[in-house]
Structure formats: C-alpha cells, structure tokens
Design a protein around this nucleic acid. Structure first.
Ligand code: MN
Ligand code: MN
Ligand code: MN
Ligand code: MN
Lengths: 234, 234
DNA sequence: TATTAGTTTTAGACATACCTAAAACTAAAC
DNA sequence: GTTTAGTTTTAGGTATGTCTAAAACTAATA
C-alpha cells in the first residue's frame, strides 16, 4: 500500500509495521551491510536471539508485505521499501541516543537499551522536532552516522585499530560494539570518540596492539578490543 | 514478586507488565477516581474501546498478578500495588506531554496520542532526568497534576464552568477533555490554562453560558463545553 | 555419484490479546 | 416471588509471534 505525497512527490510509507517487524527489518538491513549482501535465516535468528523457525515464519510475512525479497533456501534481503523502513528506525534510534546523552545526561553505555524502545515511537512530527532540537546531529554517541529524512548518510572511511600499521595514527570515529561492558572499558582506558590514537607496536602472537591515546596514555589492548575501535587515519 | 530496596526501604515494583496491562490499570485508576469507586466491566470496555469479554479475561490476569482486587460480578479496583503502577504510567504520560509542548513545540492538542506511546517506555533513569530537565513541573499542558516519584500530587479544587454562578469569576486550571477538536475549539475562542473567566449569564433552556475571557472577549459556550472547562474560583 | 553435515522449512503447539455468541447472574419491575 | 432487561462471564475461535521436533533441502566430502 503506497501513496504519493502531492507536495514532495515522494512515496510515503503507508505501512503499519509492528515493533517486531521493524526489528527484523533493522536486523536484515544491518546484516546485509545496507542491502549489499544476502542474509541467512540463521544469521537473523542469532542476531535477534530467536529461532530459525521463527525467522522463516516472519520472512514469509515480510515478503507478503513487500518489504523483503525472499526465496526459500536462497536467503533474504530488504526491498527498496523495506530499506526505507529500516533507515527510518535507525534514524530514530540514533537521534534518541543523541538526545539521551546530550539532554538527559546519560553515559554513552546507558543509551542503547532505551533507544531500542524509543525507536518504535510513531510520530513524524516528533522526529522532525527532535532532530531540530538536537541541532541536526550527523553522528550518534558511538560515532554511527544518522540517516537524514531521505535515509541518506555519508559513510566516513573507518578502519579498525588492528588493521592500522605501526607508527600510523588517527582519530577514533566510532565503535563497532555498543555494549555497556565494552564502553565502560573504553571509559576506563580514556578512549572516546575524537581521541587521538597512535599504534606503537603490534604483537603477532595474540594480535594485541600497543597504542598511545591523546599522546598521553600508553596501553596494550587485546585483538578483540582493537577490532571494535574504528579509526579515521590522518 | 516484590523486593525491598535497601537504600530507600521502599517496595520496588518488580512487575513487568505489558503495554496492554498498563493501559488497563490506568483506565481502572481513572474510572475509580483514584481507587475510590468500584469499576464495572462495561465501563472499562467502553473506556478502552474493547469488549466486556476481553475485560473479564484481563481482570483475571491482573488479579492473579495482585494489581487489582476483583470478584466476579462485583466490580474491580486497583490494589495498592496496581495504584502505584497506574500512577507511574500517569506520571510518565504527563511528563512527556510537558516535554512535547515545552521542548518539541507541539500544540497542546497534538500531545496526547504520542504520550500514549511514550508512557510505556521503561527506564527509571529517563523519567528522573526528564523530570529534572523540565524543571519538576507540577501540571501537564491540560492542567492535570503530575504525580511525584512517590505517586503523590495535590488535587486543586476545580469546578466546571456550568457549576459557577452568574457574576462569579476564576482562572481556567484544567480541561476535562483532551481531544484535539475540543482543544482546537478552545484555541479558537482564546481559552487557555491560566485565562481569566467571568460568568456573565446562564441560559436555563439549553444550559449554555455567556462568559468573558480575560475581560476582553465575550462569548457564549454550550453546556457541553462548560462542563469540560475547569475553573479555580477567586 | 553417494553420503552426510549443516541449514532451512514445515508441522504442530503454546501464550497473549482480541472477538462473537451463548450461558449465567443481578437487580429492578411487576 | 416471578419475570425480565441488562450485565457479566464462559466457551470457543482468530491473529500474532514464539517454540521444539521432524522433514526437506543444500553443499561439501568421500
Ligand atoms: Mn544503539
Ligand atoms: Mn528495536
Ligand atoms: Mn494526555
Ligand atoms: Mn497508554
């Protein structure tokens, strides 16, 4: 079901998707890297902590609503329509995270769970006014880009620390893992979005990296941690 | 399921009620005038635009969770526990309405529907910070009192215009009807929370009232309208 | 090509929240 | 006290979203 808005000549989404359907679409969008890759049933089940059988049921339903392209046994992806829905949910999630940090004084490790709820609030006026109220932010507290009202955003080139060569440096632009324990660890070691990082040494044995943060603090981080800190090289 | 918080020595609600269960409790709380009256199955069905059979099902479920006192055929009311839940939902609803008007520049007739969604967001930190951010408001945009974190609020004495005698005056302190058409009508006639009202004449025939708003605008309002504008007499 | 391990789908259940229609109950009128 | 109208509950069914277990399929290995 579609309507064309006479003013903007844009296709307006007349879909009323449930909380659950929105979460499935968001998951498929992320797992497919924005629609570029096909997504497997098991990957979705893992991601949403549900079972493969439940995913299959939902894929049939989403396909019947034309928000995914699905052929059984062949994987699934978002349709053009589904991509718009996913991007709107992601836009709301990230705007609310900015709100929680900037206005509600939440720490960056406290926002994700609440944003998971707030992203499903339906009010186009509220999203518009919230965006304005926050000063049209381009990035959320974890450095993830916020899609604009047309679903567009720039992907800044970003490299995980483990792929940066010794002696090279850059700025932390985002984190791959937004979980509370990981972000609290970053707080502890003094790492934050915008911090300057230089790779001093790399240990082949366990993949750990010795880095210096803001030219002040030298620290060794594990392979797992280095994979989850994303840098813009300078 | 209850726990006692060691710090505050208060009973903390460990209930995880659904969106729907919260709405039923809020409805019962309102219909019982805060727990003072017994509520009938049909009254709840009407209020929530559902059917009596559905209400009976839900009353059994809420009774089993000890949030209502229910005896079949004898009506229902909120329990002490249920009252706390209802007051928390009402607190959230009204705080969000203040947020939407004060910070998001919504008109007072646009906030109720969105607040119906926002009132179910679960985050005690968010409520606390929102309250602080808004400057601890005592009333929502429709003049309804906002319960504090203990569920307490003062009920200001308020009288509908139709019960005020000719020649008497007062201030609009709240509106009974928060629907968009009613509030838009009030905007049109220049009535708002805080406006000064004097009753000039009353027509027995149809119950309409002639009033003057802010000593400026003389207008005749129907019986229905006068019943829904609440005044604090001066 | 045949086997097999892993993935995905189907089949059949369950819980929540809703509905209509029929039965049970209450309270007021006769 | 009986009848009756209105209310409330029960009975049985639908839709959504979940699950386990079994069947169907795919792709890699032998
Ligand atoms: Mn997040
Ligand atoms: Mn979500
Ligand atoms: Mn309201
Ligand atoms: Mn509600």
């Amino acid at each position: 079901m579609k309507i064309i808005d006479k003013k903007s000549h844009n296709v307006i989404l007349m879909l009323n998707l449930s909380y659950t359907e929105e979460n499935y679409l968001k998951s498929i969008y992320h797992l497919s890297k924005g629609g570029k890759l096909e997504v497997t049933t098991n990957a979705i089940a893992d991601n949403l902590k549900t079972k493969a059988a439940s995913v299959t049921d939902m894929m049939k339903k989403l396909a019947s609503k034309n928000v995914v392209n699905y052929q059984k046994y062949k994987g699934v992806n978002v349709s053009e329509e589904g991509k718009k829905v996913a991007l709107l949910v992601i836009r709301k999630h990230r705007l609310w995270e900015v709100f929680l940090v900037e206005k509600m004084k939440f720490n960056w490790d406290q926002v994700h769970e609440v944003a998971e709820q707030l992203e499903h609030i339906k009010s186009s006026l509220l999203i518009k006014r919230l965006d304005e109220f926050l000063g049209y932010p381009k990035y959320d507290p974890h450095g993830d880009p916020i899609p604009d009202e047309n679903g567009e955003y720039k992907a800044t080139p970003q490299i995980p620390i483990n792929e940066i060569n010794i002696g090279h440096e850059g700025i932390i632009v985002s984190v791959k893992d937004s979980s509370s324990p990981f972000l609290q660890y970053l707080d502890k070691i003094g790492a934050y979005i915008g911090a300057k990082i230089k790779v001093l040494d790399k240990v082949d044995f366990d993949g750990s990296n010795e880095i210096i943060i803001d030219n002040k603090r030298t620290i060794s981080i594990s392979k797992q941690v280095s994979e989850n800190i994303l840098i813009s090289e300078s």
